[in-house]
Amino acid sequence: MSGRARTVTRVTGAAALVTTALTVWLGLWVTPPAQIQGTLVRLLYLHPPVAWVALYCAFGLAALSSLLYLWRRTRSLFWDRLGASAVEVGVVFTALTLVTGSLWGRPTWGVWWTWTARLTSTALLLVLFLGYLALRRVPADPDVRARRCAVAALFAFVDVPIVTFSVDWWQTLHQRGTVLNPGLTLKVHGSMAWTLGLGFLAMTLVFVWMVLVRYRVEVLSDRIGDAQLEVSLSERWAEGPTVPAATGDAGPPGSDGDGSAGSPLPKPVAEPLGGRR
């Protein structure tokens, strides 16, 4: 990672920290309690921004990068890593959405969970992308894994509107959108609106920062994997031609004509493995 990218990550992290701290301060001390909900309203400076990040930023980014990976002209491991990072952060935020919503729902609605449209579709979304992460953990060649995961992300993404529609037809307890309602008219006022807006900014910055860091981790772990491969390859080389096992298990069988003919040196083996970066 270049120095500039590291600076961007640090600046984003600092901005995320400052805005989050400001949101906490405004939300807990400055803003007044709401007329009906009382002090419970303070949880709502966090819950919608977290949901916004999870449902739109994270999975939108994941779908976009999967599409760009599958399109031949823009195919690169960059999009694969970006998509995976976005999904991972998105799963965390989706879980947070459910937890914060549940904490708010218990005193407000009297139940931890109701089978309403939004809750059900969010929970399904969580399971869908947990499946993606499970698929990603299956060891495979980086290109194979990237293509498989991109396709899985798109399958899941296609499902999202259908899930939303199907569960939307149930009777719903959840309130309609406050900010993103059809007329796009704000139904929050004064310092509360400011705090909510700041909350959105803070959570988006946290998301960007987490994706940047996660992407870096992905790059580094790939690099470690390659380095380990090279180390063990050179160790095998150092063992010399007396060990017959060195020829068999590293390369694809039959990838060259003379390798199988009893030649003890695993010469062509390093080529296909080393060239995959």
Binding site: V127, L128, G131, V138, F155, A156, I162, V167
Partner: peptide, 19 residues
């Protein structure tokens, strides 16, 4: 072709076909 397909497939398919 995945070794874990027996456990992975239900996890992937069942939420998708929930609608």
């Amino acid at each position: 072709g995945l070794r874990v397909r027996e456990t992975l497939l239900p996890l992937l398919v069942l939420p998708i076909v929930a609608p």
